[in-house]
């Protein structure tokens, strides 16, 4: 089952639509999407299950999948946030773990098949807030945490 879910990553357009759909579905519940309550516990469980199986999600709490070719950048050994490092091998494999395909080369290819959010790949993404690790990315998105990170990053 998890194998099948994992292969969903190669349907990036389907996934970006799923993301947009989920966002719309959740937005009426915004007043309840606050950190610390049962809603967060529920969402953490849901995120671990779904994003864990599909993307190998590491629960950084500040999901940027739609900006990174629906590919989790936390699975990159250097946790690059803005594209592949200069160590990618000629066969497209990772510098640090040679038997693994570079996460970012896959992310780039997938982003090209994402008409809705593909352009996001070119945006300079902010650094990670390590405090959010283990929390719900949906809650952080709707409660304004993500917007705070973006603001401190802007010049």
């Amino acid at each position: 089952m998890s194998h099948i879910l994992h292969r969903l990553q190669d349907r990036p357009h389907f996934l970006e639509l799923a993301y947009r759909g989920s966002r719309r579905l959740l937005s009426p519940f915004k007043p309840w999407l606050k950190p610390g309550g049962w809603m967060e516990r529920l969402l953490i469980g849901g995120e671990e299950l779904s994003k864990g199986a599909i993307f190998g999600c590491r629960m950084c709490g500040q999901c940027v999948l739609h900006s990174t070719g629906m590919t989790c950048p936390m699975t990159c050994p250097k946790e690059m946030r803005n594209g592949p490092c200069g160590g990618v091998r000629l066969d497209g494999h990772c510098e640090v773990i040679p038997e693994m395909l570079c996460v970012w080369t896959q992310a780039w290819e997938r982003s090209k098949r994402m008409p809705t959010y593909g352009g996001e790949f070119l945006r300079v993404l902010p650094t990670l807030d390590r405090r959010l690790s283990g929390s719900s990315a949906w809650i952080n998105d709707f409660s304004g945490e993500i917007e705070n990170i973006e603001t401190s990053w802007r010049e």
Binding site: K78, M80, R81, N82, G83, C85, L125, T127
Partner: peptide, 8 residues
């Protein structure tokens, strides 16, 4: 460590 990357 890789707390930041080159871009950050």
């Amino acid at each position: 460590v890789f707390d930041l990357d080159s871009m950050g």
